[in-house]
Design a protein around this nucleic acid. Structure first.
Lengths: 342, 342
DNA sequence: TGTAGTAACTATAGCGATAAAGTGACTGAG
DNA sequence: CTCAGTCACTTTATCGCTATAGTTACTACA
């Protein structure tokens, strides 16, 4: 069996507590004894049993991460960012997948809270964070931070991208390419999607281009929805010459729809997405996108969460917003100077 | 604070053990008392404290999963398969990323074992599983299962694909398209890569095509390595007209190299990969590939692991091999009948 | 009628740590 | 010389649960 503190204690003829304190650099122990304990611990290959420790301290040094889709490289990158930040601090990251399913999300959150994780980072699939959405949070005060997705009507710790700025940046880029019939495939009814839509409108108005309601079509978030939504746009009497898509998967679906209809990207329809998922540059038409610094997002979320965990008193929710970055590739490049601009 | 068994016990005027047994459906308890306990537990919203339980039972119901790259959708899918199988059994899955780095892998495995996980599933980044590779396994007898990657010189529980069959299938397909100068971008020096290479050779010999050593080039495993390795192949005096790539990322890199050199895929060079990663059909040229049933792989590995965990006596290692499946897309389709063949 | 046997609980010890309070030997100020 | 004040430990009490060994009543059988 593994060595326990007691073994070291008996071995050294001291009390168990002396060992415990020595190992944790407690001030109560003489330099000499500490050395003896540390030495023997190393020799016996002692490893603290964190289960016992957790029971006594009520800390598990585990952090839960709940994301809608592991397969979406954006979230995988967020998760890696989180781990990168938390690993050196001794936290173990536990990732759960919800497949964009609110019920699954609730279940996973409950499971993690029941596991007594110290904190939670969530990219939620819930469009609005109704009271009672996550029962676990009412009772236990497990600290949590939201990333990327900001559900409507909630004030919580949040780390995300400036959505309005993102929408404006993407749209302005398309306008700068000379496109005038710029459409938008918007996402689900979340604060993010609404923010991006606002940015889209603002860019149009700044450029003095009229807003046409039929140019804004709802797409879910996956490539299939992008495909069908794009088909709809293509069927309009006055077909758009550019589309700002809610995210990269939607954009990938949109490109497919355009190509299948016999039109060209970007010559006939310029397209830009958002998220800069890692295969975007290998698509049939390398995809222009707005980078959301997914790794950084994760790191910031982790940092904020640790703050909350270690704070004695629960501070009021804070928001960290990261600026978007335009990445121009082939799918939206119509003018030579566009290359320069980036 | 959360309700404890003791609260229920006092509340009901029975002993703590009665509650404990009742909640675990122990035979020792009368139907009537059990009902009373269950009812009160529900009312008080009791949730067992698994940390305490773990301390007493020496089981955590956590399973570690160590993979080389979360961003690679193949592994993300394996992880999802594992979770799909383990979740209903009450296990929590803890995923760790190693970035293909052997040292990181060792560290992650140690961390997980120190966490007292019940078992481990590893897609290793170690080419050969030297003695002492994972110190954790010498001492503690944490059961583990390897997936996908089979390091050389080891007999352990393993779940993977029939590599030789995979290599033969891919190569035979390219030959069937009429290609005769079929090259192979092989992976690192692992049993998998070697198996695929054997399959490649066998297909050639079965078709009566001579084997040319210069047609086999080492590529790491990522798209960059595929890109440079392909450039090398293109510079050969007798340039290949088809390439079987170790995996999809390598194939994606290879396609890029071919296109950049001004040649066409598949007209000038047909390409096939392996793994069927989820964006393969959205690449510049939709990629033919060999599907490895990644989700199934994960499920099987999880099933095998649970068997090991629950076995009283450690059984001898078993191997589960899954047959590969050919998926023909544009990157290798030269003949009309190829469409029929699939 | 006495002895087993069973059903249904209860009591006692841990699991491997930590927190908080206690103890004895010195030290030093008044 | 005395008494409070450190220093360096040791003791005791949990943390919340489980395993194992009692402990009562009853029931049953010869």
């Amino acid at each position: 069996m593994a060595t326990r503190m007691k073994d070291i204690a008996v071995d050294l003829g001291v009390s168990l507590m002396t060992v415990s304190k020595a190992l944790r650099n407690h001030s109560d122990i003489s330099e000499e004894t500490r050395e003896r304990v540390l030495k023997r611990a190393r020799e016996l290959n002692y490893e603290p049993n964190w289960i016992a420790r957790s029971l006594a301290t009520r800390r598990t040094y585990m952090v839960g991460v709940v994301i809608p889709d592991l397969m979406h490289s954006f979230f995988a990158e967020v998760a890696k960012g989180i781990a990168r930040r938390l690993d050196p601090l001794g936290y173990q990251v536990v990732i759960s997948n919800t497949d964009e399913n609110p019920a699954a999300e609730r279940r996973q959150v409950d499971l993690l809270v029941a596991r007594h994780i110290d904190g939670l980072i969530i990219a939620t699939a819930l469009p609005n964070w109704k009271l009672n959405a996550h029962a676990a949070f009412q009772a236990g005060a497990t600290p949590y931070v939201l990333v990327d997705r900001m559900p409507a009507g909630l004030d919580a710790n949040y780390v995300g991208v400036r959505d309005e700025e993102l929408g404006e940046m993407a749209t302005a880029h398309l306008l700068a390419q000379g496109c005038r019939r710029v459409a938008h495939l918007r996402g689900p009814a979340t604060a993010n999607s609404t923010g991006r839509l606002r940015g889209y409108k603002r860019a149009l108005s700044k450029a003095g281009v009229d807003f046409h309601a039929e140019y804004v079509v709802q797409a879910g978030g996956g490539d299939m929805s992008g495909f069908t939504a794009m088909q709809h746009l293509l069927s309009l009497p006055s077909r758009p010459d550019a589309v700002f898509c809610y995210n990269d998967p939607v954009a990938a679906g949109a490109i497919q729809a355009v190509l299948e209809s016999g039109l060209r990207v970007p010559a006939d329809v310029a397209i830009i997405g958002a998220g800069n998922v890692h295969y975007s540059d290998q698509l049939r038409v390398p995809l222009s996108t707005i980078d959301q610094s997914s790794g950084l997002l994760g790191e910031e979320a982790a940092g904020l969460l640790v703050q909350c965990i270690e704070a004695k008193t629960p501070a009021k929710p804070s928001h960290i917003l990261i600026p978007p970055r335009l990445i121009v590739r082939e799918s939206s490049r119509r003018l030579a100077q566009a290359v320069m601009r980036t």
